[in-house]
């Protein structure tokens, strides 16, 4: 379950769902689906996100800052393999900006007509280049822990964006008596509390291009926003179409109800 997202649903959907639950016996079967997915030991604080709710949209400025955090911090360890540079146009960048952004990275291409692999600057059609050649190299550089690809991270964790934000800001000194394993850090929200990722965001670690003060919380928020987009780049389109489709279907259903009443008028 994407805890935060579903919890903060606008009343309309809540009502819809409640109505369905009452109307349809089978609908009550859904509840266990939610219950098992919640997982974790500690409650994850719910956050407000601009992409929540049925009219939710992404915040371009926040995503742009988030991209900067990803690029300057997380990209040292984490890939983003399902996102292509061209997708960055969604964040409000121009074609030229995307081209320039991609060109900062080198990708291996080939073989050329000599039969050799060669390096070239990345193009917008390329996908984000991963920092490590393979998982083993990633583990070797991280004390044996594997930094997961972040393209789907918000969908892949119970709690979604709220969990990610909580994880990034959840570093603390371990409670007295806790023995941390070598190379591990204490995190309130990571399952098992010992995480192989050192505290990734700290105050003023980056200088935001738009002048926003880079507190750890701000960075965590922005990079989470960016990664939420990376997980569901079609969220805005989905919700916009959804509002129209549902409205249309409600009208159609009212019309069908009227038709039904008319046809049945002579039976009742």
């Amino acid at each position: 379950m994407e805890g935060g997202k579903t919890m903060q649903f606008r009343p309309m959907l809540v009502r819809l769902r409640r109505a369905a639950a009452v109307a349809a016996l089978g609908f009550t079967f859904i509840a266990p689906g939610a219950a098992f997915a919640a997982g974790g030991d500690v409650a994850i604080p719910a956050q407000k996100w601009s992409f929540d709710g049925i009219f939710g949209t992404y915040d371009r400025a926040s995503m742009q800052r988030g991209l900067q955090v990803y690029k300057e911090v997380c990209a040292a360890c984490h890939g983003l393999g399902y996102v292509a540079y061209r997708n960055l146009k969604d964040l409000g960048y121009s074609e030229a900006q995307v081209k320039a952004f991609a060109a900062q990275v080198e990708v291996t291409d080939g073989p050329n007509d000599q039969g050799e692999m060669f390096k070239r600057p990345a193009r917008p059609s390329d996908r984000f280049v991963s920092p490590f050649a393979n998982d083993n190299a990633a583990r070797a550089a991280n004390n044996g822990a594997l930094p997961p690809d972040l393209s789907l991270i918000v969908d892949a964790r119970p709690g979604g964006a709220d969990y990610l934000y909580a994880l990034l800001t959840g570093y603390a000194d371990p409670p007295a008596g806790t023995q941390l394993l070598a190379g591990m850090s204490y995190n309130k929200y990571f399952p098992g509390n010992q995480i192989g990722m050192p505290k990734p965001v700290n105050d003023d670690q980056v200088a935001f291009a738009d002048g926003t003060k880079a507190t750890a919380e701000q960075m965590a928020r922005d990079v989470t926003h960016f990664l939420a987009w990376a997980s569901e780049p079609n969220l805005e389109e989905r919700k916009q179409i959804g509002v129209k489709v549902v409205l249309f279907l409600i009208l159609l259903t009212l019309f069908l109800y009227a038709a039904k009443r008319r046809v049945w008028a002579d039976v009742h």
Binding site: M1, F9, A20, R238, I250
Partner: peptide, 14 residues
């Protein structure tokens, strides 16, 4: 369809 569309468009991973 109203109920189905609401889930598909607003909570597809629920």
């Amino acid at each position: 369809l109203v109920v189905f569309a609401a889930v598909v468009f607003f909570a597809p991973n629920y």
